[in-house]
Design a protein around this nucleic acid. Structure first.
Lengths: 232, 232
DNA sequence: CCGGATCCGAATCGATACTG
DNA sequence: CAGTATCGATTCGGATCCGG
């Protein structure tokens, strides 16, 4: 295994040796949402081979990033250690960085509940957020998105996952809407919410469409000023 | 190449597809210090195979992270684009994160000028820094480390590299000292500078040893409070 | 169903050699 | 100086299988 060493004595190198292997950071991304079972992770990462998943989980435990916890009612879950949770700002920053060059989705690309949850966290602007209670649908994924006092709470409705805090969201959402991947143009500010509705990128199921403006203010990632040049 | 896709539509996934391949982040780390030639990168990453280096450089250009720039007097350099430079806070945060679990160096581990430069940047605390002018030696690497008005300037003396700003540091350093990798215990606060001198972790070549205390205050990464458990 | 382990072909990585 | 070319060693990906 020393053959995989980068041969340098440096903090960045150490970090990359611990979490730089293929799939590792995506496992961590999902675990940042909450503890997950092996099967949950496999479903959230549809293209990961099962042997890679178990290998990575072992390596991440070895590195002190992930912990294996037995759960009383049949089963066990993987969860981040305190050390692993320190990666949250880094993963969020990486998500913001990558967002800027996201193109259109491949036909085979999926949006999972955990990745969408983290995407909302990357885009959340506490200082610009107004209190609101949304229900967001993207493909098969349904999320309850609650903003209160500059704090974001995301609960997965479908597929259902236990809320992190332990409480289920009460009451009715003020706005229920569905989005296509084109919503990224709304998040980047290139497309106004009303125009997105007109272009069928967003669809209001119930509630006041004007709340979409609040949503767009609360969840925003600036488009890159340096016009990205990409060879196709 | 689509076989290497993670199959998800998500900012983190996009980022990892762009900079998550083996060696990529270490190339970026070195380029964050300044533009580098192919040969410079190869020397800074002694264990990278040359075909991997050229493959990564091509991929990073394709992703808009790196640019290839011809230089007037014979040769060409690679440099980060504006998009690539946005990774600086992420790489620094990763370096701080990884620093916490750095053990002792393998016998074959090396310390390079660029990795040490970035290590100093990760550890730099602008708010706690006092103005000073150091010369630091670690192995074959010699660095001029200047702190002025809460700003850090690192110049590579050996091996010599053109300073980023274009100016060579003037005057004499106030303190010249040599360090072994054990300096990480000083950076983490586990070892007082004086004790480090007594333990031969640090050696003052010239200047007032009391300046080492300023250095330790200016460059600091807290040890993990959550005592890391690592299986050996 | 959960939590993997095993097997095998395909792709990538690593080391060295070589070239304009 | 700035890379290609080659080739064996590893790892990855996809599928199947297995014990609870």
């Amino acid at each position: 295994m020393a053959s995989r060493s980068y041969g340098q004595y440096c903090g960045v190198t150490t970090a990359v040796e611990q979490i730089g292997e293929r799939w590792a950071l995506l496992i961590i991304r999902d675990l940042l949402v909450g503890p997950r079972r092996y099967t949950d992770l496999k479903q959230g990462l549809p293209k990961i081979p099962t042997n890679i998943l178990s290998t990575r989980l072992k390596e991440l435990q070895e590195a002190g990033v992930v912990r294996r916890v037995p759960v009383m009612h049949c089963g066990l879950v993987y969860e981040l250690t305190a050390y692993g949770r320190e990666l949250e700002p880094i993963v969020l920053a990486l998500g913001r960085w990558g967002f800027q060059t996201m193109g259109d989705p491949d036909p085979e690309d999926v949006v999972t509940a955990d990745s969408l949850t983290m995407a909302l966290r990357t885009a959340f602007r506490p200082d610009a957020a107004s209190d609101a209670d949304y229900e967001l649908h993207v493909g098969d994924v349904a999320l309850r998105v609650q903003v209160e006092a500059a704090a974001l709470t995301v609960t997965q409705l479908s597929p259902p996952a236990p809320p992190v805090g332990g409480r289920l969201p009460g009451g009715e959402p003020q706005l229920v809407f569905a989005a296509t991947p084109g919503i990224r143009h709304v998040i980047s500010g290139e497309l106004a919410p009303q125009d997105a509705v007109d272009a069928d990128v967003l669809q209001v199921v119930s509630g006041a469409p004007s709340l979409l403006d609040d949503f767009a203010r609360s969840f925003h990632i600036d488009a890159p000023s340096h016009r990205q040049v990409r060879a196709s």
